[in-house]
Every structure is written in C-alpha cells, then in structure tokens.
Amino acid sequence: MTSVSMTVNGKPVSGDVEGRTLLSSFLRDGQGLTGTHVGCDTSQCGACVVHVNGQAVKSCTMFAAEAAGAEVTTIEGMANADGSLGTIQQAFQDYHGLQCGFCTPGMVMSAAALLAENPSPSEAEVRHYLEGNICRCTGYHNIVRAIMAASGQEVPAVAAE
C-alpha cells in the first residue's frame, strides 16, 4: 500500500492504494465518487472517462498512483457553482442524449474535452471523437445533437411534434 494524493473536483484528497489500484477504483471505492462508471475491462467503453490535468482519460486504464499530484475532474465536478447543470449536461437533458444513464458520465466528460479543443465541431467530427465511448441506448443520434447544441450550433428541436 502506498499513499496517494491528488485534487479531485477542486478538493485535495488522499488515500492508500495498492500498486494495481486503478484510478476508477480510487474514485469510486476510495472517494465515493460513483458517478464514474466501469462498463468494460478492455478500455473500450469510455463510461469511466474523467479529466486528468485537463485531458480526457479512461480512468480504468490509469493507476491511481499515476495520478498522484494531478488535477482530476469527474462528472460530479461538472455542474455550475450554484448546482445547476452545466452547459453540456443541460444540452444532454434538453436533447434527450441519455436513457439509462450509465455511459452518460463518460459521454459528458468526452464531450467537454472535445469542445475544449474544438469549440465548433462538425457532426462528423463529433461522431469520430466519440469513437471511444459506447452507448447502447440512444443510437447516438441525440448524443450528437446534444453536443452540437452545447457548442452553440443550430440543432433542430427534439421530437417532431
């Protein structure tokens, strides 16, 4: 066991971890931040995406010890200071970009990383960027629309009638 310290959603945290403890486990089991989800064991699904020093990272693919000293942001850190939904979160609700909610934290974190590096992506760029995030519920249609809307681009209203 070694002690590891980092900043998570602006707060300093620390805990004892084994060498093999994954960042996803540290966040979920150690810090009780269960918004970060684990949907696979081969780094494919992206439900566990968090930001480490501003970069989107699959937290199941990084040891907790590797994140020592890092600034980590999880889905729990994405709301506005007053507790209201952030822009991307609100767009996901407005455009029905989630159903069961399990992939959603990773989708929101990936979307945030995309919009940080490409503030006005094309639809094709959004779809390509989400290659590492699997959703089984939505067929991606409304996720793509939500991200386009969150970027400030025109998106048709949800539902035909």
Partner: peptide, 9 residues
C-alpha cells in the same frame, strides 16, 4: 436525467 448527469444515480 438530473441524477444521471450529475453522477448521483
């Protein structure tokens, strides 16, 4: 959606 989008599901 509120709880799913804020990690509080």
């Amino acid at each position: 959606d509120i709880r799913f989008l804020t990690g509080t599901g």
